[in-house]
Design a protein around this nucleic acid. Structure first.
Lengths: 335, 335
DNA sequence: GTGAAAGCGCTAACAA
DNA sequence: TTGTTAGCGCTTTCAC
């Protein structure tokens, strides 16, 4: 193994000079710097992470806590994780992967053992049990999602409220008078994940503002459940001409269920979705949707964390804007 | 921060005794052990990971390299990752998350800096560029998938060949005479990912053995592509009565496309899939499928790694068996 | 602009 | 069965 003393000897300088050349924490003459860089390259030197963390109390590691439960759309989680890893690497950090199931114990373990010096927590619930702990940890953290009380925390999320509003605004402008929201898995509401509630709130508020009749329907994320709900909607709400879906796995099944019931999309019923473009775009009938720039959330979370590491003050909440793309599944209601 | 000397003082023993009590590397009297455990609990002591890694050359970290590319079914990747994290925790290890896009450089960085002491590489290609490097690394690794030459490596994968065979055997037994395989995204074949080729090979071999006419069709993972392929199959192969699908995202779309073309499943055409139960089971017509116990792969990979860490010899290749479940999409061909 | 040297907290000989 | 102590490789005062 190549160590810093090897590099120092090879470059004809002291170990501390190599260290400073690496960290940039004190000025080095152009000449020595080049000599050191050359030695590092020739010897293939990489600082020992443990030694570095021990001496500097900085592990250069970000701990990422991912949820792995019902009602989470996996591709979205994955995309988010990828963006965190990429952003972390841009700041010369690595990523430690934790599962939400480890709970508070996992956070304490990683924090106290100094394995990581920052935390990103995904899928935070409204009254998350981990919040008090996060407020006391030595390491800064960023939450994805909004808890009831963000005081003393840093939270990032997409503007789901605006997402729902954008859908309703669009449908109202087309002339629809009665709209329904097909929402997340019932469990998601029960456990109080913020985004599901914010979608529902934004949906209802916008409908009220436009004077539309509206209803909200949690739905399991299986084709069978989508079909059942579609039947119920058609049966119970004859005047219904537009549906907003916020449940990735059943966007397509729902459209198909409506079609199977004899309703043409968009001639008889309009469908707008809140989902990634990867779902909306390749559909047989491309779906009008509010796309979720998930990758931006991860990148922003890492940025905020790096600012906090440097002692900068950051906002307690950050809302990332979303954008509606009109495609082929929305049209004026039938005359 | 609580350190080992604090625990030692609190328990009235030397630091080394605490260390040995923790590692179990030398016998400790029942009494001192209990006293130490009590002190650790009361003080909330957690060993400093960096210090530990520096002193022992063991980071207790497993680096997991995940692919994030076209043609990978994300839920499967995620499920696999989860099983690796869980298994690693069972062995008191944490998991460092790397993306395949970091390539060899990422492996070198993590290896040389001693951040991790084992590697799990997912989605290995037949002629993977990382193989020579992996053979020379100080840390043991396990590959998910099979390269052309596994010499000096440790590889784990599901028995995809057997999976395809099981489907063909089942269809042949039902009396089908002409079968088609709808395979992975064309890119997957181009880049030479082993499992796609093994499925194709197993499929063709089994069909030949049974004297069936057979054909193989790579397919993009979108509903549109599934529909197009279904039309082509119906048009070009009038005698076709059975299809095997190995492409998770389009299992359902393909069934629907066939139905839309006027073919009843399973009366007119049988469909068998190679996919997770989570896809096959909840379908409107539950799909006959070979299920892929992805979670077992991760657990086995970690087990092999831990054995290697202890210097044990492990097989170069491990094939995990799969199992066919007959559901509602397969039946004898029409008379 | 550079060097010398004292730790960071832990493990693992070596000693008893 | 337990204690003493010399590092592990790096960062960072302190000194020049």
């Amino acid at each position: 193994m190549v160590k810093i003393t090897d590099v120092a000897a090879h470059a004809g300088v002291s170990p501390s000079t190599v260290s400073y050349a690496l960290s940039g924490k004190r000025p080095i003459s152009q000449e020595t710097r080049l000599r050191i860089e050359r030695s590092i390259r020739e010897l293939g030197y990489r600082p020992h992470a443990g030694a570095r963390s021990l001496a500097s109390s900085r592990a250069r590691v970000l701990a990422l806590v991912l949820p792995l439960r019902r009602g989470m759309h996996v591709p979205v989680v994955m995309q988010f994780a990828t963006s965190v890893v990429t952003a972390a690497r841009d700041h010369d950090h690595d990523v430690l992967l934790l599962t939400g199931s480890e709970g508070e114990e996992g956070l304490i373990r990683v924090s106290h053992s100094a394995m990581a010096d920052t935390f990103v927590i995904m899928d935070v619930e409204v009254d998350d049990r981990r919040l008090p702990l996060l407020r006391t940890l030595d390491q800064p953290s960023v939450l994805i999602g909004y808890p009831a009380d963000p005081t003393g925390l840093t939270c990032v999320d997409l503007d789901f409220r605006q997402a729902a509003q954008a859908c309703v605004d669009h449908l109202a402008a087309l002339g629809h008078r009665r709209v329904a929201l097909v929402g997340s898995h019932p469990e998601v509401y029960v456990r109080g994940t913020g985004f599901a509630r914010r979608v529902a709130a934004g949906f209802t508020a916008a409908a009220d503002r436009h004077g539309l009749a509206s209803s909200v329907h949690p739905c399991a994320d299986t084709p069978v459940a989508a079909r059942a709900l579609a039947e119920r909607l058609v049966r119970e709400q004859p005047g219904l001409t537009a549906v907003v879906v916020h449940n990735e796995p059943i966007v397509q099944p729902l459209v198909e269920a409506l079609t199977a019931l004899g309703l043409r999309v968009p001639q008889d019923v309009s469908v707008a979705a809140i989902c990634p473009d990867e779902i909306a775009e390749p559909a047989a009938t491309p779906i009008t949707s509010v796309s979720l720039p998930t990758a931006l959330v991860g990148a922003r979370a890492v940025e905020l964390l790096m600012s906090k590491l440097q002692g900068a003050a950051v906002p307690e909440t950050t809302m990332l804007p979303v954008h509606l793309t009109v495609r082929a599944t929305t049209a004026p209601p039938p005359a």
